[in-house]
Design a protein around this nucleic acid. Structure first.
Length: 884
RNA sequence: GGGAGCAUAGCUCAGUUGGUUUAGAGCAUCUGCCUUACAAGCAGAGGGUCCGCGGUUCGAACCCGUGUGCUCCCA
């Protein structure tokens, strides 16, 4: 069989993925084994794969494949999220392009378009995950708007409403005037913007010659002013509190009030209070029983509806329908025209924007549905305590702080959204606005009768739908039908799931709420471990974004480097919870690693037809040593996997394959040119390589499966091959391996420094007290340093290069002329280093307090350091003396 | 304004309750090699005031305080 020069990933990936699917390796059904369950954080149904998904899903696949190879019943559930805001925004944009306005459509018509869109683009992302090699149980693919899922969300809403944890109320919400919906605090992004601070004068009602100046960034809300507030301790305004001032343009008389909320240092120390348009103003307004005057409509345009009782002037009425930003300009002009604008300053302020539409958020009073979080937390304190007491383990642990801080300051969750794409709120109203909550119209009518005592003919259902997170918080349960069919066999087997892998940015949106739902509906935690990934950033540490164009095309990368190399590149640089700085050179490293393994395969295949038994035991040490290294690394890797230190586990395997296996082991057992290999060594090498492939498989599934099958005839696939537990190691062999490596490296260093040509052989003389140790590794040593002979000496050898390794001295005989001065310099340098080291050790040992206080093993170690250093100094001094 | 986190080689990061040879790895760099598996490679090397200052301790990259810089979350 002819193997290509380099590894070619493309066709192999397709071949193996289809094979695994056909063998149903990814399929899971409950059985006697322990379940290892991961539910995939469902991506937006119309989303495309980006670097964040790549990181996230590669990690999950590594965990799932590792579990599958360790006797677990591995179940990884795929799915998508209907993502109400994002998807509806996309559909609205699509319709707009076709010249259709959402407002011209009925709810049913709009939803028909939305489903059409979902069928067309939904699930592309799941297909892309196959390219990455993700071993998902595709038969379990779920969608948060599947029939059962939808009904479960409604069921939960009704249930929580009955339990008194969901209520309806007028609240200050973050209003997005573009998508005309309320947003949760978490969906609002604060941005620093350059704005202006306008200094506006309010005349004193009783004496128009006096005025108070207010600094505001939002003059367009001035017509909604109901008070001026100052700090009670502010002496400047002592005489003003309780008096009336006049709001410019509208000439409304309002009171000056005092509240500690106002900071005397900011602006002029006087704050205008507009309860309809600012959260804090609303708080103060409520506290001081002030009226609320709303001057902006749902689209952010001026409306005089609330002003009508005051009979506004023609000027004020002319503002009607003006957009908030145009209005700001106009009002500033008009205030200036009446001489009430004192000055304007530029100001850097924070402004909230919508995560989805980018629009500047308005604080707005509106009727919304809320979940009472304080009440919930009183009922299910486990939501917090399970995390703090590590029943649910967060990785990295520092994320616990973030979690507890949020949970302890939890605010009510606004769960209604002014959207159509999503679960429609099961609330029904009569003409007067009286409300009942029920699953459908018929039961709503029944409920109405029960509650209000009269029959009703027509009820109108709430137009709004539920926050997306109000459906995804049920994800770990409802993918197993845990809500729609409680206590079915699957939910009881797979739940609690084992591990959740997700981004830190949705710890509150999603992780916290799944924990809540878990305790409420299953009385159990939803997962045992949470692995938080960081954000994927570019090389310069910038967030990846469409605007910056720094987000690489993932499928292009897979095409270019292969899925395995892509997985390698992202995993090698991804410590838990830290941001990942994506650098394409890591993928190159992954591709090079593929080639390295491919070439190791080629070497071993060359031996296939060239074998002859040998009586020589020259290779015995290489076999013994690599066996030990393998066992050692195997247990290290399992340890690291258990601690979720995946990138370190990969690094460890990488170095075992590249350095220990390829650079040391294969070179040690490689026969000379045209020489046959011993069949036992050949077989052992295949067995070693097989184990290495098995270790690496979770990280790089395609190439490992391919090489595994090329290496030998196999009756099973690597994908489901069960791992053997690591055996205890023999330290003596590992130590001897270290000695051998050090000797080889040390002598090669001398060859390099002395410019001894690679092809030129040398003669080696070893002066050592442990010559029997060297004899068993002599043939490997000789081969690796290209020596023609190795002898043992009990004294220095003239006309040689001298180097000291460990406690042994090596004399290297070659054709190169000897430079005694240079040799001396090098030895002296080494000697000085050792003497410095010895000094620091002796300083410790001569310290009485150290000797008294240090643990015995620490003391013994220091004493060993001392004697070792002394012995080595002696050896170097002898060598120096012999050079003369 | 409130809270959290981070700072170790040119870059990305390890460093497990303070003691493991006067700090480790990968990448990058430099030197020498087209050695019959691999130049996408091999062999070897150099490179650090562990952010500054102060403290605790026999002993600090690690603990405490403080300053500086960066990041994130919440107002």
């Amino acid at each position: 069989m002819e193997l290509s020069k380099n590894f070619e990933p493309g066709p192999i990936e397709e071949k193996w993925y289809q094979h695994w699917l056909q063998k149903e390796y990814f399929k899971s059904t409950p059985d006697h084994r322990e379940a290892y369950t991961i539910v995939m954080p469902p991506p937006n149904v119309t989303g495309v794969l980006h670097m964040g998904h790549c990181l996230n899903n590669t990690i999950q696949d590594v965990l799932i494949r590792n579990a599958r190879m360790h006797g677990k019943n591995a179940c990884w559930v795929p799915g998508t999220d209907h993502a109400s805001i994002a998807t509806e925004a996309k559909v609205v944009a699509m319709l707009r392009e076709r010249g259709i306005a959402k407002s011209s459509l009925s709810r049913e018509e709009f939803l028909a378009y939305a489903w059409e869109w979902k069928e067309k683009y939904g699930g592309i992302i799941l297909q892309q995950l196959k390219k990455l090699g993700c071993s998902l149980d595709w038969d379990r693919t779920s969608f948060t708007m599947d029939k059962d899922y939808y009904d479960s969300v409604i069921k939960v809403f009704i249930d929580l409403h009955q339990k008194g944890m969901i209520y309806r109320g007028k609240r200050m919400v973050n209003w997005d005037p573009v998508s005309q919906t309320a947003l949760s605090d978490e969906e609002v992004i604060f941005k620093e913007v350059d704005s202006k601070l306008y200094y506006v004068q309010y005349q004193l009602a009783e004496d128009p010659s006096k005025h108070i100046t207010v600094a505001t960034t939002r003059p367009e809300t001035i017509l909604g002013d109901v008070a001026i507030c100052v700090n009670p301790a502010d002496e400047r305004f002592e005489n003003w509190v309780g008096k009336e001032v006049i709001v410019p343009l509208i000439n409304r008389k309002i009171k000056v009030i005092a509240d500690e909320y106002v900071e005397a240092d900011f602006g002029t120390g006087a704050l205008k209070i507009t309860p309809a348009h600012d959260k804090n103003d609303h708080l103060i307004g409520t506290k001081h029983h002030l009226p609320i005057i709303d001057t902006l409509d749902a689209t952010g345009k001026f409306t005089s509806v609330d002003l009508m009782p005051e009979q506004p002037s023609a000027q004020v009425l002319s503002y009607n329908g003006m957009d908030r930003f145009a209005l700001r300009k106009k009002i500033v002009e008009d205030i200036e025209a009446i001489g009430k604008l004192e000055k304007t300053e530029s100001y850097k302020g924070q402004v909230g924007t919508s995560e989805r539409t980018g629009a500047v958020i308005e604080s707005r009073l509106s009727m919304q549905w809320f979940m009472n979080m304080q009440l919930f937390m009183q009922k299910k304190p486990q939501t917090l305590s399970s995390v703090m007491q590590d029943e649910i383990q967060f990785h990295p642990a520092k994320t616990k702080n973030t979690y507890s801080h949020w949970m302890e300051n939890i605010k009510d969750w606004c769960i209604s959204r002014q959207l159509w794409w999503g679960q429609r709120i099961p609330a029904w109203y009569d003409a007067e606005g009286k409300c009942v909550v029920a699953a459908n119209e018929a039961s709503a009518k029944e409920a109405y009768k029960k509650e209000f005592g009269s029959e009703i003919q027509t009820l109108r259902q709430d137009e709004d739908c539920l926050d997306t997170w109000f459906s995804s918080w049920l994800w770990p349960m409802e993918v197993f039908k845990g809500i729609s069919q409680p206590n079915n066999a699957e939910i009881n087997y797979y739940y609690p799931t084992t591990t959740l892998v997700t981004g830190q940015d949705i710890i509150f949106f999603w992780v916290a709420r799944m924990i809540m739902a878990g305790y409420e509906y299953k009385n159990d935690l939803p997962f045992k471990d949470v692995y938080f990934t960081g954000m994927v950033r570019d090389k310069q540490g910038r967030k990846m974004s469409k605007q910056l164009g720094n987000s690489p095309d993932l499928l292009g990368l897979i095409e270019q480097y292969g899925a395995d190399a892509t997985r390698f590149g992202i995993m090698i640089a991804a410590p838990a919870g830290n941001d990942l700085l994506f650098d394409e050179s890591a993928l190159e490293q992954g591709r090079n690693f593929n080639n390295k393994m491919w070439n190791a395969l080629k070497l071993i295949k060359m031996w296939e037809g060239k074998q002859a038994p040998s009586s020589s035991t020259d290779n015995q040490f290489a076999l013994d040593w690599f066996e030990q290294r393998l066992q050692q690394v195997k247990s290290e890797v399992q340890e690291l996997m258990q601690q979720y230190r995946l990138s370190e586990a990969l690094k460890t395997i990488y170095s075992l394959i590249w350095d220990d296996f390829c650079s040391w082991y294969l070179e040690w057992v490689k026969p000379g040119f045209e020489q046959p290999i011993d069949p036992a060594v050949y077989q052992q090498t295949i067995s070693f390589y097989t184990e290495l492939l098995q270790l690496l498989h979770p990280f790089m599934p395609f190439i490992t499966e391919e090489i595994y099958h090329l290496l030998d005839k196999r009756s099973e696939d690597l994908c489901v091959r069960q791992a053997q537990t690591a055996q205890a190691t023999k330290p003596a062999i590992l130590e001897k391996g270290l000695l051998l490596k050090n000797a080889i490296t040390g002598i090669r260093d001398v060859r390099n420094r002395q410019q001894i040509k690679p092809k030129e052989t040398i003669s080696l003389h070893i002066q050592t007290a442990q010559s029997d140790l060297y004899q068993s590794i002599e043939s490997i040593l000789g081969k690796q340093i290209n020596s023609s002979s190795i002898q043992y000496a009990d004294h220095s050898v003239a006309n040689t290069f001298t180097t000291v390794i460990g406690k042994d001295t090596f004399y290297i005989e070659s054709l190169q002329p000897i430079n005694a001065t240079q040799q001396k310099e090098e030895l002296v340098k080494e000697l000085n280093h050792l003497k410095g080291f010895l000094q620091s050790v002796e300083k410790k040992l001569s310290n009485e307090k150290f000797v008294q206080n240090a643990k015995p093993e620490v003391l013994a170690l220091e004493q060993k350091k001392q004697s070792d250093a002394l012995a080595k100094i002696q050896v170097i001094e002898d060598s120096l003396a012999s050079i003369g």
